[in-house]
Write a protein that binds this DNA or RNA. Structure first.
Length: 300
RNA sequence: GGCGUCGUAGCUCAGUAGGUAGAGCAGAGGACUGAAAAUCCUUGUGUCACUGGUUCGAUCCCAGUCGAUGCCA
């Protein structure tokens, strides 16, 4: 039986390092489940693995896309499952590491079959939303998919917009797609979570931002300024510095915002991962215990 | 040294014609099905600097003390 080992945890906790150590110990390769490290243009700001780290263990889905590419969870699921199929021919275990909860969950548990976004349709809905406000989206969704509207988060424009988009695109209410459940995999999954004292983690985050600046974050972001409206750049570390380069805030302020937003992001990740009862949690130094746990799960 | 201003939630500050106080930010908790590092929801009790006085009652008025700051010497 093949095993996929997932390593989850909040940003800056040390997932990259742990994944490399685990993969080396198991003699295998690593998949990323980090929705921003996919983009080759984003390096320093998303704390992508360094060249030295990449040389230690083969990595996949690091910098394999351009910020100009359209990508989403579903495509990731397909890409990752395809890759796993070939990797499992050579390895009994493969490591996947990342902080994008939705991507990790989709890889492990699948996702409903839904159409990709129709960019033109999405843009036109978005335009009306910007003109008429969220009430417009609510009214439309209420008509198009009353079932979804019942339980929807009607304060969240993105959710409403998506429901509208899918329903208009297919002629079938969005809620009907969501009922579809997914496939079983021919591998099993061992889930590892990394955790750390909140205060320590927050200090690490603050320090890492300063380190990113030393590594040349400002230059990286400045070069991406023309692309600031791309979704891939709606990212902590970039959007705050765009504001600085546009003269809206001081550099000091922008960096402070990055730290704050990264802390909040970390908190959101913790909230996401906490609800997954299959995850076994470890401290950042418990490499030995993690390997023992992986081994004991394999022998079950 | 003299005169003035200020001292209220972790931070920046409101406020109470005297009936023990509230915003923004930070922080905390939560949600999450093709934009997910995204997007959204909920959440504010603190010796109102300290010590006395006046008062039925003081964070608010008065005096003193301490601290900050400005101007004058």
């Amino acid at each position: 039986m093949k095993t996929l080992i997932t390593i989850a945890g909040p940003t800056a906790i040390g997932k990259t390092k742990m994944a490399i150590e685990v993969a080396q110990a198991l003699g295998t390769e690593i998949l990323s489940a980090d929705s921003r490290q996919f983009y080759k243009e984003l390096k320093i700001g998303v704390a992508a693995p360094s060249n030295e780290e990449l040389a230690q263990v083969p990595h996949h889905f690091i910098g394999h896309l351009s910020i100009h590419d359209y990508y989403n969870v579903s495509r990731y699921e397909i890409d990752a499952l395809n890759l796993l199929e070939s990797l499992f021919q050579r390895y009994n275990q493969v490591v996947v590491v990342g902080g994008s909860g939705l991507y990790l969950d989709t890889l492990c548990g699948g996702i409903s079959e839904l159409p990709d976004a129709d960019e033109a349709l999405r843009a036109s809905i978005k335009e009306k939303f910007e003109q008429s406000g969220i009430e417009y989206l609510r009214e439309q969704v209420k008509i198009l998919d009353p079932v979804f509207y019942e339980t929807a988060d009607i304060s969240n424009p993105m959710r409403l917009l998506r429901a509208m988009e899918v329903t208009l695109q297919t002629g079938i209410p969005y809620s009907q797609f969501k009922n579809k459940k997914q496939q079983r995999h021919n591998f099993r999954i061992t889930k590892i979570g990394l955790e750390q004292d909140r205060e320590v983690l927050y200090n690490r985050i603050n320090q890492r931002v300063d380190l990113m600046v030393e590594m040349g974050l400002l230059e990286e972001v400045q070069n991406l300024l023309p692309n600031k409206n791309l979704n891939a750049l709606n990212t902590v570390g970039y959007k705050e510095l765009f504001e600085y380069f546009e003269g809206k805030v001081t550099l000091e302020h922008a960096l402070e915002n990055i730290k704050t937003h990264t802390r909040r992001y970390a908190k959101r990740q913790m909230t996401w991962f906490k609800r997954d009862s299959d995850i076994q949690w470890f401290g950042t130094e418990q490499k030995i215990q993690i390997l023992q746990y992986i081994n004991s799960e394999d022998n079950k």
